[in-house]
């Protein structure tokens, strides 16, 4: 892997963590109020990877949007470092090349086109996308698109990444490759990570800690520390045991 000049230096600070305290959030809809979150609490230390699992509709996406400042809680407090979202689908701009998509966060801040390209180009190479700089999203595979999407969010240069089921749309094999890839990237580019998933194995393999949420209204029902060395093997008995522990917390028998 080629060592690229890092244009967005980031040393994680002491206040780059996440603190969500007893947060509630209710949406008014035509069919009455929907309680997305009720007394949800969650903490992440700077540089920690916290994975959040829960049944569908448990307010996981709401949680990420609160952390990103896209919504405000009805009650409770959200204190966290500046966060950037990585949406569930890659949402690459079809009219832009991989290079321009990767540099979107820079363009959003008002950086000029040439400067944004110069900054993003070495990163594409580092992310195994050399030769695809000028390819449009339609010409990229699902895994490549997800890597461009991740890079786009990474280049926002914020200490906290909020990943919303980042690999859910990928096929099973690509998903496993992308999980390993993410851990590799985060080892050289430390960030505090909040990763929402419905894949229990993914939560255990990626997370330093797994937060298990209840069904709607969502709140944390269990917190499972994963103190296993990386890289983690999915067949490792310790991983399998933790997986069963998470499933039990979800109320599903393994």
């Amino acid at each position: 892997m080629i060592e690229a000049p890092v244009k967005e230096p980031r040393e994680l600070q002491g206040d780059d963590g996440v603190s969500v305290e007893l947060v509630s959030r209710t949406f008014r809809t035509r069919r009455g109020p929907v309680h997305a979150l009720a007394s949800m609490s969650l903490r992440a230390r700077p540089g920690e990877i916290v994975t959040v699992v829960g049944p569908s509709g448990c307010g996981k996406t709401t949680l990420l949007e609160l952390v990103c400042g896209l919504q405000l809680p009805d009650s409770g407090t959200v204190r966290c470092a500046p966060a950037v979202l990585m949406p569930q689908r890659d949402l690459l701009l079809p009219w832009c090349t991989a290079l321009d998509n990767a540099g979107l966060a820079l363009r959003a801040r008002g950086v000029g086109r040439a400067q944004a390209r110069a900054t993003a180009a070495p990163w594409l190479e580092r992310f195994g996308l050399a030769g695809f700089e000028h390819a449009r999203p339609a010409e990229l595979s699902g895994g490549m698109r997800q890597r461009v999407s991740f890079l786009r969010s990474l280049l926002a240069g914020k200490p906290l990444l909020a990943l919303d089921e980042p690999f859910a749309a990928l096929d099973a094999i690509t998903r496993l490759q992308m999980q390993d890839w993410l851990i590799e990237v985060l080892a050289s580019e430390p960030r505090t990570v909040l990763l929402v998933t419905h894949d229990v194995e993914e939560a255990v393999v990626l997370g330093d800690r797994v937060v298990v949420m209840s069904g709607r209204p969502g709140h944390a029902v269990a917190e499972i520390e994963v103190s296993l060395a990386r890289p983690r093997r999915r067949g490792d008995p310790a991983v399998v045991a933790l997986r069963e522990q998470v499933l039990a917390a979800l109320g599903v028998s393994a």
């Binding site: 896209l70 966060a83 979202l85 949402l91 959003a108 969010s153 926002a156 909020a162």
Partner: peptide
Amino acid sequence: DLIKLMRTFD
């Protein structure tokens, strides 16, 4: 979601 993404890009 793309609009939200741009908002988190400030």
